[in-house]
């Protein structure tokens, strides 16, 4: 299995897209840290990249890669190898190379310029989101045989998590503002990994604002040990569940 993963990683690394992605992240992070006099502001701008660009690139790249290596997968299937093993190796290879790109492009500048709480939580969130969106990509591409359809649904997924979901939450908050919504909002954040990651980073950055009103509640919850455990385990669930689902479909699929 390691061998297969290694081949996938080699294949991707030779690909120019991932190089460009790494370089893009590196240039953006370095220039943000150089231009902003305040490290906090640089982290803030990086947070936008991590929450918007990173999921988009991860999900689209993983999908395209899956469709492109479809023939390779077919070839592997003709060998005496388990299906779970093949699809998992594909996932591991893709996720690993995207992770490496992120850690090289954002991780190194952050560790150099701002190796504190907010920086580390940014890296944690970035890693989680890369893994989550790669596994969502695999789910979508395993489900759809047609490439155009796969990429389309993947873009829609990204759009949903990055934009539509928050709009829906806002809608809910306003329509039910007469009710106590504190617990509900906590639950709502768990249903979107991007929101969860954002709050996780934000707690390290905007503590002053969060200490007011309802903010204190979130701070109490997410800031505590249970909160950290909650965030991590929800993130892990977001990685594992789509992947398991994808593996299940792949195992039953008529290739």
């Amino acid at each position: 299995m390691m061998k297969l993963t290694r081949y996938v990683v080699y294949d991707i690394i030779r690909n120019k897209v991932i190089m460009a992605y790494t370089l893009f992240l590196l240039v953006v992070s370095l220039s943000l840290f150089q231009v902003e006099e305040n490290q906090g502001k640089a982290i803030l701008s990086l947070m936008n990249i991590v929450l918007i660009v990173l999921p988009l690139v991860s999900i689209v790249f993983a999908t395209i890669h899956y469709y492109n290596s479809y023939e390779f997968i077919e070839l592997m299937l003709s060998q005496p190898l388990g299906r779970t093993r093949i699809i998992f190796s594909e996932y591991a290879g893709t996720a690993l190379s995207l992770l490496m790109a992120f850690l090289l492009g954002v991780g190194i500048p952050v560790l150099i310029y701002s190796p504190d709480d907010s920086g580390l939580s940014l890296l944690f969130t970035g890693c989680c989101l890369t893994l989550i969106f790669t596994s969502l990509a695999f789910l979508a591409s395993v489900k759809a045989r047609d490439k155009a359809r796969g990429i389309g649904s993947v873009l829609l997924l990204w759009f949903y998590f990055a934009l539509i979901y928050d709009g829906l939450v806002l809608l809910i908050l306003f329509n039910f503002s007469d009710y106590p919504l504190e617990k509900i909002t906590l639950l709502l954040t768990a249903l979107n990994p991007v929101d969860l990651g954002r709050i996780f980073i934000m707690l390290k950055m905007d503590i002053s604002a969060l200490m007011g009103y309802t903010g204190a509640l979130y701070k109490d919850f997410f800031g505590s040990g249970t909160g950290l455990l909650f965030t991590s385990s929800i993130m892990v669930l977001w990685i594992v569940l789509p992947l398991l689902w994808a593996i299940r479909i792949f195992n039953k699929k008529d290739i």
Binding site: L170, F174, V194
Partner: peptide
């Protein structure tokens, strides 16, 4: 202004939607 009216919306601080 939104937060002033609905403090729960603090949850969406710095999200893409809110920035838009």
């Amino acid at each position: 202004m939104i937060i002033e009216e609905n403090p729960n919306a603090l949850l969406l601080m710095r999200s893409f939607t809110v920035q838009l």
